[in-house]
C-alpha cells in the first residue's frame, strides 16, 4: 500500500492496513502496529515507530480520500502532470 525504505536503517516499511505495518530487513519480515509494537513474524526487533506511523497514516488518509492537494508539494507535481 505504501512501501518505503528507511533512509537510515534501509529496512522496508510497508503498510498492510492503516494499523498494521510489515517491516523487512535482511530477508526477514515481521508485522508491527502503527506505533511500532511487535505483532508477529520472524523479524522481532526494535523498529522505528515514526516510520510505522508514516506509512500507516498514508493508508488512513488514502482511505479517507485525502489526496495530494494544491497545498502540498506533491500537489504541485500532480497539477503539472495534469497540465501536460
Amino acid at each position: 500500500m505504501h512501501q518505503m525504505i528507511h533512509p537510515l536503517t534501509r529496512a522496508t516499511y510497508d503498510a498492510e492496513t492503516d494499523e498494521i505495518v510489515k517491516v523487512t530487513r535482511d530477508g526477514k519480515s515481521g508485522l508491527y502496529t502503527r506505533n511500532g509494537e511487535y505483532i508477529s513474524g520472524e523479524l522481532k526487533q526494535s523498529v522505528d515507530p515514526e516510520m510505522c506511523r508514516w506509512v500507516a497514516s498514508y493508508v488512513e488518509h488514502k482511505n479517507a480520500g485525502v489526496g495530494a492537494s494544491a497545498r502540498d508539494r506533491a500537489g504541485a507535481f500532480v497539477a503539472m502532470k495534469e497540465e501536460k
Binding site: N35, P49, E50, R53, W54, S57, Y58, E60, H61, A64, G65, V66, A68, S69, R71, D72, R73, A74, G75
Partner: peptide, 18 residues
C-alpha cells in the same frame, strides 16, 4: 489525521503529536 484540510501536513503532525 482528522484534519484532512491540512493534507500531507496532518501526517507530519501525526508524528509530532506522537
Amino acid at each position: 489525521l482528522e484534519a484532512h484540510e491540512l493534507g500531507f501536513l496532518a501526517r507530519v503532525f501525526d508524528q509530532d503529536t506522537f
